[in-house]
């Protein structure tokens, strides 16, 4: 640019670059521009400029809408992973049986199916889950009122088998705070209020029912058990340790109004 500005309108031309101030012919101008064009710095700058232009053009496409090919890629990847996983599982020593189905749950068990543990006799497992009881097993005595008392271990076994319904005899506030997954609230001091709500949810009179409250001296669970016995239910047991023992054993809990 400097060259062109200084050389405009002048009639002389110096062959040396250092003294070059004027341009006298179009041909020479072309040659000079060629020389300048071949200069390494210029070439680099122009190459950079070209690259930037290309990138800027492509940058106009700020995002790409996933097309058919993307879905095909995803599908292929999923198919490959699926086949690999099945093959790996069939040769893996700790693999599991894919075809086995868990035992069908009854209508009542659907109440607790989302929060209860898997039955240990589920045929799908080659290696059934083993859980070490954290509290020593104690005998399950039957008292004069013919209601069986259960320890936390016995309760956990029934909980795992999903064969029983738990009734929480504590206050609704305490129940909402936390309770055994699947348990229904049946407050022992308001039997008239809770009975019409809970009893229709029980499957039949032979349904295995476990009641619990605060353990120790708490007799709310006993009141509930007696009420149910009077109503004709035959399989009622009381979890003597109640909520404190369950919580101490760190077994699963649910929170909220729902079972």
């Amino acid at each position: 640019m400097k060259l062109l500005q200084e050389g405009q309108g002048r009639g002389s031309f110096s062959p040396h670059f250092s003294g070059m101030k004027t341009l006298d012919s179009p041909e020479r101008t072309r040659q000079l521009l060629e020389i300048l064009h071949r200069a390494p710095t210029i070439e680099i700058l122009m190459a950079l400029k070209r690259t930037q232009n290309i990138l800027n053009q492509s940058a106009k496409l700020a995002f790409v809408v996933p097309g058919k090919e993307v879905f095909l890629q995803a599908w292929n990847l999923l198919a490959f992973s699926f086949i690999f996983a099945i093959l790996f599982n069939s040769f893996y020593s700790d693999g599991i049986e894919l075809k086995a189905k868990p035992p069908k749950s009854s209508n009542l068990q659907t109440i607790i199916k989302n929060s209860s543990s898997l039955a240990p006799d589920y045929p799908g497992w080659k290696k059934p889950p083993t859980q070490t009881p954290r509290i020593k097993s104690i005998p399950t005595p039957t008292t004069a009122d013919n209601i069986t008392r259960l320890s936390v271990v016995g309760v956990k076994e029934r909980f795992d088998k999903k064969t029983c319904v738990f009734l929480d005899a504590r206050k609704p506030e305490e129940y909402q705070e936390s309770h055994i997954p699947g348990a229904l609230n049946f407050y022992g001091n308001e039997l008239e209020k809770f009975a019409p709500l809970v009893i229709p949810q029980l499957m039949d009179k032979n349904q295995e029912i476990i009641t619990y409250c605060h353990g120790g001296d708490c007799d709310l669970s006993l009141q509930v058990a007696k009420t149910l016995m009077e109503a004709g239910f035959t399989h009622i047991e009381i979890f003597t340790g109640g909520w404190p023992d369950w919580k101490k054993a760190s077994y699963p809990v649910s929170v909220g109004e729902k079972p």
Partner: peptide, 13 residues
């Protein structure tokens, strides 16, 4: 069972 077998490999690949 199938989900437990397949999902981790989906994630891995």
């Amino acid at each position: 069972s199938s989900t437990a077998v397949v999902i981790p490999w989906f994630e891995f690949f």
